[in-house]
Nucleic acid binder design. Structure first.
Lengths: 199, 199, 199, 199
DNA sequence: AATGAATGAGCCTTCATTCAT
DNA sequence: AATGAATGAAGGCTCATTCAT
C-alpha cells in the first residue's frame, strides 16, 4: 500500500533515498525509463531491490522524484539570473547570461530532459510538471522585466517565446547535431533577436 | 532472422506491409511505442502476429518505417511552400505560409512526433533520421532563398533558427498548454522576427 | 487485457486448456491455492508459463474454472440419484444411495473441496458459486420429493438439513479423523435420522 | 532461529505477546491468513516488526497461537453447558442451549473459524488441533451424558453427529446464505432430531 | 505466404525474515 | 528487549519473437 512508504527523516535514510534518486537519475539519463529496471536502480544505489519500495511507491514514483529535482535545478539558476541582474539593465548582456546558463543546464541535463520529456506524452502528471515549470519561469521573468521598467506590451508572450528560442538554440549547441551550422554565428543571431524583442 | 525479411514486390504484399505500418503509426501515436505491442499492431492491421515478422525484422523496424513515412509527410509540404512561392517574394507572406503549414503538420502529427522524438534519445538510428530531416529542410530552404536573391550571410543558420522558432511556436499553439498566452499575439511576434531575420 | 483470452474451439486447444485446468485441479488439491504457482501449473500441464495467460485471465481464473468443473461433478450425480430413484420410493434405500454417493464424491474431491471452500471466505465469487450449488441441490431434491408425493411441510428446510448432515458424515468418514468413532454405526444413525425426517 | 524464541515471563512481555496474538486474531479474521502480513500484525499490535520474531518462530506460529486461543474459547463454553445442566435433564432444553451457544460462538468466530479451518488442509498441525478439539468436545459430552444416565449405546457416535448437525445449522444461520430457508423452522427440526437422538 | 498458438526471459512488486543499532 | 530499515527470494504476469501447421 502506498501509505507504507517511509518518509525518511533520519540522515542516513535521506541519504539512501537520495542515492536511489541519483541512481534513477543516472540510469534514466543513460538508457531511458524503459531501458531501466528497478533491480538495476537498486544495484547502482547500493541497496536491495526491496528497500526501493520502502522509499518509493513504484518505479514511476522514482521518476517523479527525479523530475522534481530536475525542475528545481533548472528553475533556480534561471530565476536567479534575472533577479540578480545589475541595473541599469544591459539587454544584450542579460540575453547572453540567459543563453549561457541555458546551455550549461542543457549540457548537464540534456539526456535526462529528453527522457523526462518523452514521458510527458503518456503521463499526465509528468506533462503537468513541465507545463508548470514553463509557467513559473515565464511568470518570474515577466515580473522581473516589468519591475525593471520594460515595455509591458505582450510581455508574457515575448518572454515565453524568448525562452523557447533560447532553449532551441541550447539544445542544438549541446547536441551539435548539424555539422554545417556555425553555432557561434547562430548565437549572435539569437542574441540580436532577443535584444530586438526587448528594446 | 533478419535475412529472412521479405521484400514484398507483389501488390498484395505491399498493401499488407503498408497496413502494418499504418497500424503502427496509429498505435504509436495513440499510446506511444512502449504502450503498443506487436499483437495489437497485427490485429489493427488485420493480419496475423506471425506475418509481421515476415515483413519487419522486429518491432523497432516498424517504428523505423513509420518514421520514414512521417519524415516524408513533413518534409514534402514544407519544401513545396518555399519552392512554389510566387515572385517577387513577400517575406511576411512566406513566413505566414510556413507558420500555418507547420501548425497544420503539428496538429496532425504532434503525438507521433513526440513518440518518435522521445526514442531518438535511446536509438541512434532514429536520432540520425531526425537530424537528417532537419538537414534536408534547412538545405532545401537555404538553397531556395539563395536562388531568390536573399542575403547569403549565415543563411543556413538563419534558416535553421527560423525553423526552430516556427516549430516551437507551432508546438505551443497545438498543445495550447499555457492559458496565459495570447497565441495570436505571439504569432505576430514570431512573424516579425522572421521578417526581421530575412530582410 | 482480459479481452485477449482465447476461447479455444479447436480440439487441440480445448485439450490444452483442459490440461491446465487438470494441472490446477491437482495442485490446488495437493498444496492449496497459495501453495501453487502458475509456473508449476504450466509445468505440470506440459505448457509454457505464457500460454496459461492465453487461456486464463489470471491465476484466480483457473481456480474459477476448476470450481465450475467441481460443481458440475458434484451436482450431476446427486441430482441423478433422486431423479432416477425407482418407485414406489423406499426412503431408507434412497437415503443410503445419497449417503454412499456423497461419500464417493468426498473421497474423490475432499481436498479440492477444502481448498475451494477456504477461498470462499475471501472471494465473493467463489462463495456465491458454493451457495448457488447448495441452492441447486436443495431445489432439485425438494422438487423431486414433492413430485413423489412427500409431505411438503418445510420440505426445503428438511432437505437442506438432510444434505448438511450427509455431508458432515461423509466428511468424517473420508478423513477418518476420529479413531474412537465407529463409522458404520454412525452411518446407521444418520440413515435413521433421514428416514425419520422424510416419513 | 527457533531456539531464540523468548518465553516471556515478565508481565510486560506477556502483555506484548498477547497483543500480537490479538492483532493476528483480528487480521486473520478480517482478511484471512494470506491477506495478512507480519508488518500489519506488528503495526496493529503496536510493536515493531522485528520483535514479532522475538516472540514467535514465524508467521505460522502466530496462527498456531491464535488457534489455541480460539479452541479454548470454543471448548470451554460448550463444555460448561453440559456440565452445568440442571437435573433432571430436560433433553430439549439442553439441545436448545447447545444450539444457541453454538450460534453465539459462530457469530463471534465464524470468519476466524473459516480462516483456521482452511489452513487445516495444508497444515497438519492445524488439522490435528481441530481434530483434537472435536475429540475433546465429544469425549467430554459423552462422559457427562453417561453420568447423567443416558443410554450408552453408540453414545460417542450420537454425540459427535449431534455436534456436527448443530454446527452445520449454526453455520447456516450465521451466514444466512440461503434466502429460501426458514431458519426458525429449521431450528425446530434440528431440535427434534437431537431430542430423538437422545431419548 | 500466412496463421496464431506457444515460448520463456524478464519485469515489477511483495513480504517473511534478519540485522545493525 | 526493541526498533524498523534492509534483504532477497519468489511470484504473477507481459510480450517480443518463434514455430508447427
Amino acid at each position: 500500500m502506498a501509505s507504507n512508504i517511509r518518509v525518511p527523516k533520519q540522515e542516513r535514510s535521506i541519504e539512501k533515498k537520495n542515492k536511489i534518486i541519483q541512481a534513477g537519475y543516472e540510469l534514466f539519463s543513460e538508457v531511458g525509463y524503459y531501458g531501466t529496471n528497478t533491480a538495476e536502480i537498486a544495484k547502482r544505489a547500493g541497496v536491495s531491490t526491496g528497500i526501493v519500495y520502502g522509499y518509493f511507491a513504484d518505479k514511476r514514483d522514482i521518476l517523479i522524484c527525479v523530475l522534481e529535482i530536475y525542475i528545481d535545478n533548472v528553475y533556480t539558476p534561471l530565476a536567479d539570473i534575472v533577479e540578480k541582474t545589475p541595473r541599469p539593465v544591459d539587454v544584450r548582456r542579460l540575453a547572453l547570461s540567459v543563453i549561457d546558463k541555458t546551455i550549461a543546464l542543457h549540457t548537464r541535463y540534456a539526456k535526462l530532459h529528453n527522457t523526462l520529456h518523452s514521458l510527458a506524452t503518456t503521463d499526465e502528471a509528468v506533462n503537468a510538471q513541465f507545463i508548470a515549470l514553463e509557467n513559473k519561469i515565464t511568470e518570474q521573468m515577466s515580473g522581473q522585466l516589468l519591475k525593471l521598467g520594460f515595455d509591458p506590451t505582450n510581455i508574457t508572450e515575448r518572454v515565453h517565446l524568448a525562452m523557447n528560442i533560447v532553449q532551441s538554440y541550447a539544445h542544438e549547441t549541446v547536441f551539435d547535431s548539424h555539422s554545417y551550422i556555425d553555432y557561434a554565428a547562430m548565437k549572435d543571431i539569437v542574441c540580436n533577436i532577443l535584444v530586438a524583442l526587448f528594446s
